[in-house]
């Protein structure tokens, strides 16, 4: 039983930075708005799990897509500016989270489930039955 989960390099950032510097700073800034969420990845007998921090992402603005064997997590942070207030100090920026994983063949793509709670995305990726260890009954 072999398989790999590979993190793709963050193409979302790379392909948005203008190759032509004359294109201006606004696109460069836009590129920085993409943020790579911190992720925990684990494995059990039945499958893998993936946990990603995306604080500020509402359930409706989270997108988890699987195309062939590529899993993409994307979430948009909506900043809720309090009425009549001005920004006095900033340590984090409004951003678009994005992270891409290449799944191993043993993942049963149809069974992938995702949910988000308190800004944490949990994706469960079940393994195909054929590759799960089976206990063989011993007669006698």
């Amino acid at each position: 039983m072999t398989g790999t989960i590979t993190r793709q390099e963050d193409e979302s950032v790379r392909d948005r930075i203008p190759s032509n510097p004359a294109a201006g700073g606004s696109r460069l800034r836009e590129a920085r708005m993409h943020s790579t969420p911190a992720v925990d990845l684990g494995e059990s007998q039945d499958g893998f799990w993936l946990v990603a921090d995306m604080p500020g992402v509402e359930p409706k603005s989270l997108e988890v897509t699987v195309e062939r064997n590529v899993l993409t997590l994307e979430g948009q942070v909506r900043v809720d500016v309090p009425d009549g207030f001005e920004l006095a100090g900033r340590e984090y920026w409004p951003k678009q989270y994005r992270r891409v994983f290449v799944l191993p063949d043993i993942v049963q793509v149809e069974g992938i489930k995702a949910r988000i709670h308190h800004g944490v995305v949990v994706v469960s990726l079940p393994k195909r039955r054929a590759v799960q260890p089976r206990k063989i009954m011993i007669d006698g």
């Binding site: 001005e86 308190h118 800004g119």
Partner: peptide, 17 residues
Amino acid sequence: NIWSSAEGLVVDVEIPG
């Protein structure tokens, strides 16, 4: 992130999970 007005402050703290 901290927002301010004459009324006071709004402090947003990023704490996932």
